[in-house]
Design a binder for these strands. Sequence first.
DNA 1: CGAAAATTTGACTATGCTCAAGGCGAGTGG
DNA 2: CCACTCGCCTTGAGCATAGTCAAATTTTCG
Lengths: 227, 227
Amino acid sequence: MFVKNVIAHQALFAGLTDEQLTGLASVIVDKPYEKGEVIFVEGTPAKGFYIVAQGRVKIFKSAPDGREAVLHVFGPGEPFGEVAVFQGGTFPAHAMTVEKSRLLFLPRDALVARISSDPTLALNMMAALSGRLRQFAGKIESLTLKETPQRLAAYLITASELKDGADSFSLDIAKGLLAGMLGTARETLSRALGRMVEEGMVAVEGRQITILDRTSLEALAAGVETL
Amino acid sequence: MFVKNVIAHQALFAGLTDEQLTGLASVIVDKPYEKGEVIFVEGTPAKGFYIVAQGRVKIFKSAPDGREAVLHVFGPGEPFGEVAVFQGGTFPAHAMTVEKSRLLFLPRDALVARISSDPTLALNMMAALSGRLRQFAGKIESLTLKETPQRLAAYLITASELKDGADSFSLDIAKGLLAGMLGTARETLSRALGRMVEEGMVAVEGRQITILDRTSLEALAAGVETL
DNA sequence: CGAAAATTTGACTATGCTCAAGGCGAGTGG
DNA sequence: CCACTCGCCTTGAGCATAGTCAAATTTTCG
């Protein structure tokens, strides 16, 4: 029942009947992962895709020297690895837990079969994929046209909005990981954040961020898409 | 019949019956565009999506100062703007012709209706969206982890492959546009290409490129994803 | 052939990366 | 309960890539 409860509230499966959900739940495998565990490696043939039930997963590309470009960090309820189901058949990037997690695995065939017979699921899936594309487009824009402080400002604004617009909130990922998401080095992120503190825009205590001057922060972020 | 001929050979519509194609063709609008004409602007509500029949279209984001991040350059047969149909309802970026073109417009409702009734079309569409995501992931990786010469080398290798692996081929876009695609400035691209010429890797005459030392070029591009 | 667009080149600057070292904090074993 | 260790973060110094501005040059098209 745990599995069904997790999927029942996801946008991806919105509009499915209780019966359909039960059917899906029956083919899903629920598996625990430790922090830092590799889920899959880029290029591996995919037999299905995953949904985060608990914990957090990063999707990333890596350079030989160990640097990483973080494409996504997914939390509870979010699906990942679907791309491989529909095109190419192999995972397009690496996936690793960043916390102790619990993941659901949905086999490819089961998904394709259901999509073929249920237009709602198909349209949900397309909406999900389209949303990702939009996000990536924003990321490419920001990497190409903006600098680190602007990207950071945009991230902080968005993070605040996700916490209902609170001025003070906690980052839910480590700063090193955030640096990877912003496409920069840990050191550069640290300095950029330091400068914001100096200028009185924000206060920082560990992962706790307090926005002191939202107006300036927004001005800095102007025109930068959500990451 | 022109419209039907164009769509009949696209991956997106593969597997559709002749009858279905005729039906689609009947709701498609065929429209000519001059070079440099705006097709749509980011944020505009989308009433449907487009397919390039002839010519070439760039999809891009732009900064207030005029700099551009080119997300795609689409040629004959390629669809664009679908994201808006499935999610959000507005176009995620700007679109402009870079050559005199002829574009097909497919209204949203017609597409959604057909997808709902035809799983083949739905799966084709998901494959197309997934392919884009893969491409974007590669672009983000290369922007984050690689430098201009490496990105350029990867582009040249790919361009050569698209021309059946010929050592000598013609770029089908202007160099300024290429710079935008590689996420760099015209001047930087020019210098990077100049260095490759100095080092005897390639010869350049206007848009004509000749690969002289494919091995070195590949070594330089190593690990960089296709853009 | 001439105007406009695209490209190249030069000089300068700056953003951000790398390498290196030091600090902080949480969890752990003694 | 405390000292220790490990992981994570910060700070400093130097350097390299690439961006900007400006101007010369080439190419494209009408």
